[in-house]
Design a protein around this nucleic acid. Sequence first.
DNA 1: TCTATAATGTGACAAATGTCATATTAAGTC
DNA 2: GACTTAATATGACATTTGTCACATTATAGA
Lengths: 201, 201
Amino acid sequence: MTKIYLAEDQKMLNTALATLLGLEDDLDVIGTATDGNTALSEIVLKKPDVAILDIEMPKLSGLDVAQQIDVLKLTTKVIILTTFAKASYFEQAVDAHVNGYLLKDNPTDQLVQTIREVLDGKTVFSPELVTSILSAEKNPLTKREIDVLKEIKTGKNSKEIAKAVFLSDGTVRNYISSILSKTGTSSRIEALNIAEKNKWI
Amino acid sequence: MTKIYLAEDQKMLNTALATLLGLEDDLDVIGTATDGNTALSEIVLKKPDVAILDIEMPKLSGLDVAQQIDVLKLTTKVIILTTFAKASYFEQAVDAHVNGYLLKDNPTDQLVQTIREVLDGKTVFSPELVTSILSAEKNPLTKREIDVLKEIKTGKNSKEIAKAVFLSDGTVRNYISSILSKTGTSSRIEALNIAEKNKWI
DNA sequence: TCTATAATGTGACAAATGTCATATTAAGTC
DNA sequence: GACTTAATATGACATTTGTCACATTATAGA
């Protein structure tokens, strides 16, 4: 009997998947959580064979949980299950040596199949994910520009951003100018819209 | 046998719920869709007893589908199933005379129970939804201010907004000034953040 | 009927934003 | 070793943004 742990913060999906997976006669859902902290501690305790982790959860993200599982060298196989085909998420997942990365835009069959393949020792990435990442506009922003853009998102003005990232006000404005030119926009909000659409931040 | 139609654009949840509901021996899932258009035409054709509708779907929103069902005076009972406890969504749902409004932050049992209650002729609104709406900050913005704020969101500058909403540039800036004061902010981005947090736009 | 409030406008002003030219230093690449 | 890019900075400038005072008209409520 394969022991499954499921971490997913949307209860409707959490309970639905727990029930469905439990119906498979070789799978046993030994626990579920709706936040990352609970998930991590229970996974450490209960040592499931497979952990299915949503990314965006309260307290600790599924990627953080995956990373901890990797660091602690647990034998638990990890499958990330998320809505987001975002390059930076995917990279983090690969860094954490996850065994699978599946989008919620797949039917449940696919999840069951992924579980089986992962148990077989395979590593499984959603084909749509790979397509989506390969076809995505490559992020042209530098690290610091991304830092600045994230501060912009919170609504800070130039001076506040400067304080937050330890730069001069002028430098921040230069970075913003550069962000605008790279995104082909002429205001902070437009730049944010473009960057979010392309999943650069 | 109660005929259920399910419209939900996230395939993982769509398939999971379809399977689960199908397991109930008095319920029969006669069709599913991942967009509003398909849902509406199939509902018109197949006349299910209950339609479960997600709100944010491609082509036609669940609220639009609900409204059409109401206008066409179909006997199909409608349950809105959504992530969003947003006052304006709820109001639209009430206007469309839906029979239930359930948040995805509920377990599947709740959905099954809601289906049964709706079939019994009851009208069911998620308690968390009601709480959330009652405890929500009431939107202090006027209609025109909301119009302007929506334009701000697209990244337009004052002149462009003025054109878009047929106002003078000065008036737009006055409205923005008023929006900022009502939201207690000092920039467009902050105002957007507050308005989105409070689900005013 | 009086009184808010919404919707709309103008003009003036200070502050913030965005652009540009220019510069230094460090790191990485051919 | 030359070249490019990133990271950082300054100063000057034009434009945009946000504030404020003030004004008109329409409408809804007490």
